[in-house]
C-alpha cells in the first residue's frame, strides 16, 4: 500500500473541498471495497477523504411512503433498524445477509452503491424497489444509476448522501452466495411496489444488476413462484469463475427468483 494523505472532514463542504483538492483523491466510507484493492496495489489514491465525521449521513427515516437510508449507514445498522424491519423487511433481511459480521459492521450502503460491484447485494435491492440515489447535488433513479460493472453516473467529486426506498406492498431477496467470498453468485430481489412488480438480479451478469422483464410481466399476471419457474435467462454475458460458470449462474437466477417470490408470501 502506498502512502496517502488522510482527510477527516466534519462537513459535506469540507469533504467536497478535499475531494476537489487533489487529483488522485478518493472518498472512503467503510473501506471494505477500497482497502483490499489498495493493499494489493490495484488502487493507489493520493488522498483518502473519509465521510465518517460528516454529520447527518447515517440516519434512517420513515417518510411515509418511503424510507430514506443515510449513505454512511452500515449494513448492520440497516439490518437492525426497526424502521427498515417494519416498513421494508426484505431490505433489512438482505442487509443482514451481506458478507459476514465484520463486513456488516463497517461496510456502508453508500459505499456499496457508489462502488457498484457486480456481485454486491444492494444494487438488486435498489433496482427492484425502485430506489432513488440522493447525492450532494441531485437525485438519480436506480435504473439510471447502475450502469454496468463498477460504472455509475457519479462525478468524480460527487458524494452519495442517501438512498430513498419506496415502501413496497411485498418484497423478498433470495441469494445464492459464493461459498468462499459470500458475494452473490445470483441474488434476486423481487418487489411489488408503486411501479408494479420488479425483478432485479445481481451477481450473475458481467454488466452488473439487471431486470428480468419476462419475469416481471409473468408476475404481474400471476404473483406466484410457478409463474417464474419456467422462465430462464440467457447465459450470454453471465459471469464465470471457479465457483459458478455462466450456465449455472443463469440457472440459479430462475431458482432464486422462484424462492424470492415464495418468500414474499
Amino acid at each position: 500500500m502506498n502512502d496517502f494523505t488522510y482527510h477527516a472532514p466534519t462537513s459535506l463542504d469540507e469533504a467536497l473541498a478535499a475531494l476537489r483538492g487533489a487529483e488522485g483523491a478518493k472518498l472512503i466510507a467503510g473501506g471494505h471495497s477500497l482497502l483490499p484493492v489498495m493493499k494489493l496495489n490495484l488502487a493507489a489514491p493520493s488522498d483518502l477523504v473519509s465521510l465518517a465525521g460528516v454529520p447527518g449521513l447515517a440516519d434512517i427515516s420513515d417518510d411515509g411512503d418511503s424510507v430514506t437510508v443515510g449513505a454512511m449507514c452500515t449494513h448492520a445498522q440497516v439490518a437492525g433498524s426497526a424502521t427498515v424491519q417494519g416498513r421494508i423487511p426484505a431490505l433489512a433481511a438482505m442487509a443482514d445477509g451481506i458478507g459476514d459480521a465484520q463486513v456488516r459492521n463497517a461496510g456502508t450502503i453508500g459505499g456499496s452503491v457508489a462502488h457498484n460491484d457486480p456481485a454486491a447485494d444492494y444494487p438488486a435491492a435498489c433496482v427492484a424497489l425502485g430506489a432513488t440515489i440522493v447525492t450532494d447535488r441531485r437525485e438519480i433513479g436506480a435504473d439510471d444509476f447502475f450502469q454496468g460493472m463498477f460504472m455509475t453516473p457519479l462525478a468524480g467529486d460527487e458524494v452519495v448522501t442517501a438512498v430513498r426506498f419506496p415502501v413496497p406492498s411485498r418484497a423478498a431477496y433470495a441469494k445464492f452466495a459464493n461459498p468462499a467470498s459470500k458475494y452473490a453468485v445470483a441474488g434476486v430481489m423481487v418487489a411489488d411496489g408503486p411501479d408494479g412488480v420488479r425483478v432485479a438480479v445481481t451477481g450473475a451478469s458481467g454488466d452488473g444488476v439487471f431486470r428480468v422483464g419476462e419475469m416481471e410481466a409473468a408476475l404481474a399476471g400471476s404473483f406466484s413462484a410457478d409463474a417464474v419457474a419456467g422462465i430462464s435467462v440467457s447465459s450470454d454475458g453471465m459471469l464465470s469463475d471457479t465457483a459458478a460458470g455462466a450456465d449455472y449462474r443463469a440457472h440459479l437466477v430462475t431458482v432464486m427468483a422462484k424462492r424470492a417470490v415464495e418468500a414474499c408470501g
Binding site: 459464493n178 468462499a180 467470498s181 469463475d241 471457479t242 465457483a243
Partner: peptide, 22 residues
C-alpha cells in the same frame, strides 16, 4: 469445498479467500 485450481498457464485461480473455500 476446498479446491486448489491452477490455470493452464500456471497461475493460481484460487489464490485467495475470495475463491478458495475453507
Amino acid at each position: 469445498l476446498e479446491d486448489c485450481i491452477y490455470q493452464d498457464d500456471g497461475q493460481l485461480a484460487t489464490g485467495s479467500y475470495l475463491d478458495y473455500t475453507m
